[in-house]
C-alpha cells in the first residue's frame, strides 16, 4: 500500500513538474498554478507546494500561507465522489443543514472529511447560485435541486449499486479470461 502511495506521489510530482514549465516565474501565477494542480490532482500535497515555491522563487511558507487562505484548496485527497452541500441563505431556510447532517450520518463522516474507502467526501459550500432550487447538493458535477433527507439515501444507494455492478462486471470479465 505504502509503496503504491509513493509511486502515486511520484507520478503526481512528475506531472506537476511538466505542467509548471508552461507558467512564467511570476508571483501573480501562484494562484493559477495552485488551481491547475488542484484541478488535475484534486489536492495539494506538501511536496507539490514546495515544488511551486521553488518554481516561483518564493519561500515554502508563502505558498502554504496563500493556499491555506482560500476555501478551494484541499491538502488531502478527496473521495472519488465529492458531495458538496450548499448552505447558502435560501438553502439554509429550507433545511440545508438537515441535508448535510443526513449525508454525514449516512456516510459516517463529518464535513470536510473523506470516507475510509476514499469513495466519498463531504464539503459544505456557501451558495452555488441555484437558490430557487433550494436546498441544493452537488455531487461530482451534477447539481441536485429540491433535496430531501429521503433523496440522500437514494443518491448514495445509487452509487453503491453502480459500484457493485462495476465490481461484478470486472469479476465477470476476469472469469471470462
Amino acid at each position: 500500500m505504502d509503496h503504491t502511495r509513493e509511486t502515486e506521489e511520484e507520478a503526481l510530482l512528475n506531472d506537476i513538474a511538466s505542467m509548471l514549465a508552461a507558467f512564467e516565474k511570476e508571483r501573480a501565477n501562484l494562484i493559477p498554478i495552485l488551481q491547475m494542480i488542484q484541478e488535475r490532482h484534486h489536492y495539494l500535497s506538501a511536496s507539490a507546494l514546495q515544488m511551486v515555491a521553488k518554481h516561483l522563487g518564493v519561500s515554502g511558507c508563502e505558498v502554504y500561507g496563500v493556499a491555506t487562505f482560500y476555501n478551494q484548496f484541499r491538502f488531502y485527497p478527496p473521495g472519488k465522489h465529492r458531495i458538496r452541500v450548499c448552505l447558502g441563505t435560501a438553502c439554509h431556510l429550507r433545511g440545508g443543514d438537515i441535508i448535510l447532517e443526513n449525508f454525514e450520518r449516512k456516510l459516517g463522516i463529518k464535513e470536510a472529511e473523506t470516507t475510509a474507502d476514499r469513495e466519498f467526501s463531504i464539503d459544505r459550500v456557501a451558495c452555488v447560485g441555484c437558490c430557487a432550487l433550494a436546498p441544493v447538493a452537488i455531487i461530482d458535477d451534477t447539481v441536485h435541486g429540491h433535496m430531501a433527507p429521503s433523496k440522500v439515501e437514494g443518491l448514495i444507494l445509487g452509487f453503491e449499486i453502480e459500484k457493485q455492478r462495476e465490481k461484478r462486471g470486472k469479476q465477470h470479465g476476469e472469469s471470462k479470461q
Binding site: A46, L49, Q50, A53, G60, C61, Y64, G65, T68, F69
Partner: peptide, 14 residues
C-alpha cells in the same frame, strides 16, 4: 500567516 480567520496562525511551513 497561514489559514484564515480565527484559525490564522504563523507558519514555518517548508
Amino acid at each position: 500567516f497561514a489559514r484564515r480567520g480565527l484559525d490564522t496562525v504563523i507558519s514555518f511551513f517548508g
